[in-house]
């Protein structure tokens, strides 16, 4: 089943096109990586999918249900009220710079939304949160505050926070770009462990070997379009001028 479909998405900022007619879909259990040069619109695409930005054209479907679209005369239609709540519960997003709530403890960061928003039972939520923290290797940190954690630990808490809402699909926007190189590994390891659990993920990343290794499918974006799409080997070994140039530049660093 297709969890997410984005059809003919367009996005402009101040009249300047950033995303030009992008279509993609994500199957249940699939891991899709999005790579591409800086400014190619990867973040914008994720922000459109997670409704942090409103699209200027096209449609977004979650679970086959039309979640947002732009109709023939250019009016954006976004869900409201209960419908919006339902659509929002389908996805989670992990930010580059974590965006943990600094005034909440690790435990509260993870449990507040399930309890306050989803109105789930406290005990069950806490039990699940502890399991998640154990999975993230952070069992001893449940009472710590974000400012007491390393970047890698913060990002793992942010992943646990997103997972606690049981989303159908989890988006990552460069989850390791704000981290020191030695902390990148621990976060990638956690994401790998999620892959083993068949969690559907869309990952924007500059970690090429990681993307190649973990993904079922890779999209190479360039200047607001999907320049190349396919199995990791097909994309990374493609005889395509733009991706060769891009991968070449990455290797130089």
């Amino acid at each position: 089943m297709k969890l997410l479909e984005m059809n003919h998405i367009k996005k402009e900022f101040d009249g300047l096109g950033v995303i030009h007619d992008i279509s993609l879909s994500v199957d249940e259990g699939e891991i899709l990586s999005i790579i591409g040069p800086s400014g190619s619109g990867k973040s914008t695409l994720l922000r459109c999918a997670t409704m942090l930005e409103q699209i200027d054209g096209g449609e977004i479907l979650y679970m086959g249900e039309r979640a947002a679209y732009v109709d023939a005369d250019g009016t954006r239609v976004y869900p409201k009220g209960e419908q919006a709540k339902k659509i929002h519960s389908y996805f989670g997003l992990v930010f580059q710079n974590f965006n943990l709530f600094p005034h909440y403890s690790v435990m509260k960061n993870i449990t507040d939304a399930p309890i306050r928003i989803q109105k789930r039972g406290k005990e069950e939520v806490y039990r699940e949160a502890r399991e998640l923290l154990a999975k993230m290797g952070l069992s001893d940190k449940e009472n710590a505050y974000p400012c007491q954690l390393s970047g890698g630990q913060c990002q793992r808490v942010a992943i646990a926070r997103a997972l606690a809402l049981n989303p159908k699909i989890l988006f990552f926007d460069e989850p390791t770009s704000a981290l020191d190189p030695e902390l990148t590994g621990e976060v990638l390891k956690v994401i790998r462990s999620l892959a083993e659990l068949n969690i559907t993920m869309v990952i924007v990343t500059h970690e090429m070997s990681f993307a190649r290794d973990i993904s079922d499918r890779v999209i190479f974006m360039d200047k607001g379009v999907v320049a190349l799409e396919g199995k990791p080997d097909e994309v990374f070994d493609a005889d395509h001028a733009r991706i060769r140039e891009f991968l070449g530049k990455i290797q130089e660093r």
């Binding site: 942090l52 709540k85 989670g92 965006n99 943990l100 709530f101 939304a113 926070r161």
Partner: peptide, 11 residues
């Protein structure tokens, strides 16, 4: 980012 995180979490 604080607003965005809250929004994505459903607040």
């Amino acid at each position: 980012g604080q607003y965005e995180a809250a929004r994505v979490l459903g607040y």
